[in-house]
Design a binder for these strands. Sequence first.
DNA 1: TGCATTTCTTAACAATTGTTATCGTCTGCC
DNA 2: GGCAGACGATAACAATTGTTAAGAAATGCA
Lengths: 189, 189
Amino acid sequence: MFNHFVKQFPQLQKQLDKYAAYYHRIEVPAKTILLREGEISRRAFIIEQGSLRAWFTNKGKDITFQFFFEKEGVSSIESFRRVKPSLYSIETVEPCVVKYIHKKDADMIMKDLENIPEIREQLNDILLDRQLNYMSHFMSLIRDTPKERYLNLIKEKPQIIKRIPQHYIASYLGITAVSLSRIRNAILK
Amino acid sequence: MFNHFVKQFPQLQKQLDKYAAYYHRIEVPAKTILLREGEISRRAFIIEQGSLRAWFTNKGKDITFQFFFEKEGVSSIESFRRVKPSLYSIETVEPCVVKYIHKKDADMIMKDLENIPEIREQLNDILLDRQLNYMSHFMSLIRDTPKERYLNLIKEKPQIIKRIPQHYIASYLGITAVSLSRIRNAILK
DNA sequence: TGCATTTCTTAACAATTGTTATCGTCTGCC
DNA sequence: GGCAGACGATAACAATTGTTAAGAAATGCA
């Protein structure tokens, strides 16, 4: 909920704005961990300014699997909704201004919103969108080579290329930083 | 909806059973295409017996990205719900007995069910489960080597290893059939 | 400005995977 | 039973990616 598709639904956004008083606003430097892997998420975030990444550790290396930018909502959804330890950390990449809401307030708001059938439908649409989003990522990973995925990223999400350090992008593509550097070199011909 | 998580929700299953009359039952041989890539999905399926795969073509090769077995629900969800051309085909792997429901009937049933808050919550849970499922697949693809993914498949989904031809499994793992054969050989030591 | 840290590139070599082709085995079916 | 097609293993070679290391370039901050 409150995820990065919210911005596509102005009507829903309007509803959420009614609850603006429940949001807290903080400014944090780069590399600030907002949620640590293994902890239970008790806050959901919206980015006002800056960028975040979601990452986890595996065999001593950290692997980034998602990036977030302005106006996007961020939470460890399974941890937030189901009150379980998060499988990953959420950390600022750039210095950020973020707003957050506590779980108890979010739950209350959701109870309100779910009584409005129209809003309910939009929330369902958001859930479906997220699912299709992950599905299409998954399909791309088994279909495309790393070079194709990188070219695709340049076309589809240029802000990632411009604003995110390359070694984070490398793990997002499923390769090493060295390999991504070689791919970039090969693209220049 | 009606997906492979339904079986985890007996109460929901009970509700769906009330509408059993809307389901049609068919027996089809192996390699029968139930939905063709590019077509609009007008039916949702439940497998009574047998196995299915979801696949698409890319550069002349076909890539399988999901398998389904008994009691699981199968549909091209974005095509079925949003009335858009499907991004992939759905095809039997083994000879199957499947039940299906027409979209107009499914829509009607959903309208009924959504009025029951308890059921609504379970449907939401199902959507969230699917999302987490794809997310965890995605994380595994950028985290693990093909060999690790294959070993994981043996442990987590042995029915895939036992019942699905190897070259389908290979594309599901994001590698070629030759490479999977080599990995199997290496595992034997 | 200057320094420490982070980020990126490149090289050399090892390991893995892709490609193409061949061959043996299995399977379903008439 | 016999046949055609599907399936899987293997070989040889090309291409890609991983690993480790070193150094250059960029960045942030005191």
